[in-house]
Design a protein around this nucleic acid. Structure first.
Lengths: 229, 229
DNA sequence: CTATTATTAGAGTATATACTCTAGTGAGTC
DNA sequence: GACTCACTAGAGTATATACTCTAATAATAG
């Protein structure tokens, strides 16, 4: 594997593990057992590394959120979108943690990320639209759909921060992809009132599969056996 | 004013303006025209300053979210809670920006914040409960109420980050308290399906007052005259 | 007035961080 | 064999950062 790619890979790994703020270019070089000079031969600076990683993240999510227009949407589609978005969030989880700082330090990234957000929101809106077309949810006025979509986005992008900050349990409470995906439960919660009678049961069952098994804010632990995952 | 208090005040101001990561203890001292030594006479380290600021934040929000149990809840109460929470968020806006890093660097803060979150969530749940008691919203099963409350919390705490990251417009697009409070529109969006017929119109009108006047993700600008604020 | 304590200035320090510079090495090309 | 060129090592640098130390000054109590 090319040194350049190794740098990107190691950086992502270290960023995800320790947080971008705690990972220096020297750390990255040391982790790869290459010299700092070598690293700076391949990248002008740390921002450049982060930017390239963002481009990968962007490509991944754009790929997942490509909504096929030639057929109606199914519940499996919805599941796929939700799972995929959380997969992406997990793989590049360092990114949202220091988002504001990162955007402040790199204008390119700021503008790209803005457009990325817009595309994601448009995709979510389109998903709602197609869910209505498929009679899975009741149709909504455009205003409401936009506001709902934004709420979905806010919940998705903040779910991980909630898990990491609200559940202290330092040593044991390691965050996993499974925990992260329990955010799907939260997203589906918002759709409940809009479900059509035909699909209500099925969506509720789907939602149940993602019910958090960590103590909720009441200190209660859900008993649901999270089978099949 | 005591030097100690001046340090806290200046720190908060600088943190909010530039972000905690971009503000050093030397900056704070320079801003107050005192020596670094003086600053370190009053505080053991930067974390201590942040911790004390958090305690103020906590006290403020706890004060706002004290739910009176001796009378039914009104719509004015709800408005007050929403406005207050966003006021608090605004006054200590640096805090949520670097939350994960801050909690990682200070165990006390981590534990205190965890409990703070729990109290906030409990308050939100209680508000939903009392809204149902007052026949403003339909009653919900406890499960749903908990999940809804968590979503409200996620939307509230992520709204500012959304504004700061999704709306690039560097120079002009200065973030203001008014913009921030448009998050109330998003929060009320989640309650729409649960409103009782009696209150539906009134809550929708309230919500309309907070309709964002910034371009939404479609590039459209809401026309609503945001009167009276 | 004296002794003590609280407060402050300001120079200084150890370490870290992002990044640079020079001197190569080794694989291919003519 | 001379030359090129992508790639790499590793020492080095300027700056920043969190924090310390000493000495001095103001405030206060007896």
């Amino acid at each position: 594997m090319k040194t350049r790619d190794k740098i990107l890979l190691s950086s992502l790994e270290l960023f995800n593990e320790r947080g971008e703020r705690n990972v220096t270019t020297n750390h990255i070089a040391a982790h790869l057992a290459i010299s700092p000079g070598n690293l700076y031969y391949h990248f002008r600076n740390k921002s450049d590394i982060i930017y390239e990683i963002f481009l990968e993240y962007e490509k991944l999510v754009d790929f997942y959120l490509d909504i096929p227009e030639n057929r109606p949407m199914t519940l499996d589609d919805l599941t796929f979108y939700l799972e995929s978005v959380f997969d992406g969030l997990w793989s590049y989880r360092f990114f949202h943690r220091d988002l504001e700082y990162l955007l402040d330090s790199d204008q390119r990234l700021r503008e790209d990320y803005r457009q990325f957000t817009e595309r994601c929101l448009a995709a979510i809106r389109r998903i709602f639209e197609k869910l209505a077309e498929a009679d899975i949810i009741h149709p909504q006025p455009e205003d409401l759909r936009s506001a709902m979509s934004l709420n979905v986005w806010l919940v998705i992008t903040n779910w991980m921060a909630y898990l990491k900050t609200a559940h202290g349990c330092e040593g044991e409470g390691e965050l996993t992809l499974t925990h992260l995906k329990q955010g799907i439960y939260q997203v589906l919660t918002m759709e409940i009132p809009y479900l059509t009678p035909d699909y209500r049961e099925r969506v509720m069952a789907l939602r149940e599969k993602y019910r958090p098994d960590i103590p909720d804010a009441n200190g209660r632990v859900a008993l649901a056996a999270n089978d099949g995952r």
